[in-house]
């Protein structure tokens, strides 16, 4: 069990995260928050790249900073953005990283081939990475994070740059990996996690806002989300969510506290995206 205990992180006099308390046990945790909310900051603390200004992070009761290498050998980490040695092939790059992870050489070589297969890079495993597309690099990163079969897998926007096919594959992969380990991933892309996340963690104003199952999080908007094809007819306080086109009509989703929502719109089941937009609105109720 990984415990974040009243952790605050400040950069100079800017507070990136304040008094965060979280507990991670088996399953997939999604950090869902807008840009600049502090997701990467939390993740960097979980990977010991940076250290909490206040508070502590514990693995089974032991401070991860003190555990040092015994902690680091248990994690797999995909940074939000990472560089690579341009003249290396994925295989060379992974074997270099395996050495730094202290993995057995032969075992690591076998695992590397397996992982490159998994992320569909087997046919380019000996090509120089300088010619790779962003999505291919990202997949090398994913493979790398899995090398040591980590007990804690930490992924910072892993789906950025992946095409729909890879994205689905990845979602399935993560879902199955989270059966027997802690997976923590940050994302903005609601559809990546909506169906697979066990817990959704949200930050607002650099504080923890929610840490709950997707269903429960959606529940807070229950009865408040509607759809209409005539948004101009609304004359009460509401918040516009998403639009979509259907048979030439523009159908608009909106949220409102007003009891009159149902008069104009038809009630729909709120989804995570609605909640995201609702929570991180610019306080712009029209």
């Amino acid at each position: 069990m990984l415990t974040v205990n009243h952790v605050t992180k400040t950069y100079g006099n800017f507070t990136a995260l304040e008094d965060i308390t979280l507990e991670f046990s088996q399953g997939l945790y999604a950090l869902l928050a807008p840009n600049g909310a502090g997701k990467t900051t939390l993740i960097k603390m979980l990977t010991t790249l940076i250290f909490p200004t206040r508070g502590e992070i514990l693995l089974d009761g032991d401070e991860i900073i003190a555990l040092d290498e015994t902690y680091r050998e248990k994690i797999g980490y995909l940074p939000q953005e990472f560089g690579y040695y341009k003249n290396h092939s994925p295989r060379q790059f992974l074997s270099y990283l395996a050495a730094l992870k202290g993995l057995d050489k032969r075992e690591a070589a076998r695992k590397t081939d397996e992982l490159l297969e998994l992320v569909s890079l087997a046919d380019v495993r000996d090509k120089k990475m300088r010619k790779f597309s962003g999505g291919m690099i990202q997949r090398v990163g994913i493979a790398q994070a899995l090398q040591n079969d980590p007990r804690i897998l930490i992924l910072d926007e892993p789906t950025a740059g992946l095409d729909p096919k890879e994205r689905v594959r990845f979602r399935n992969l993560i879902s199955s990996l989270s059966k027997n380990r802690i997976v923590i991933m940050s994302t903005h892309i609601v559809s990546d996690i909506e169906t697979v996340a066990n817990q959704v963690v949200m930050f607002k104003d650099h504080k923890l806002l929610a840490n709950n199952t997707p269903a429960k999080i959606c529940k807070q908007l229950e009865g408040k989300v509607f759809e209409t094809d005539d948004i101009t007819a609304i004359d009460f306080a509401h918040m516009q969510l998403t639009e979509r086109n259907e048979d030439g009509h523009t159908i608009v989703r909106f949220a409102t506290d007003s009891a009159r929502g149902a008069e104009i719109g038809r009630p729909v089941t709120p989804n995570l995206e609605d909640v995201f937009l609702y929570i991180y609105r610019d306080e712009a109720w029209i």
Binding site: P79, E81, G83
Partner: peptide, 13 residues
């Protein structure tokens, strides 16, 4: 090479 985040999170980083 901007590999810092990756490399220094590793066990022997």
């Amino acid at each position: 090479n901007r590999t810092a985040a990756l490399v220094f999170s590793l066990r022997k980083g």
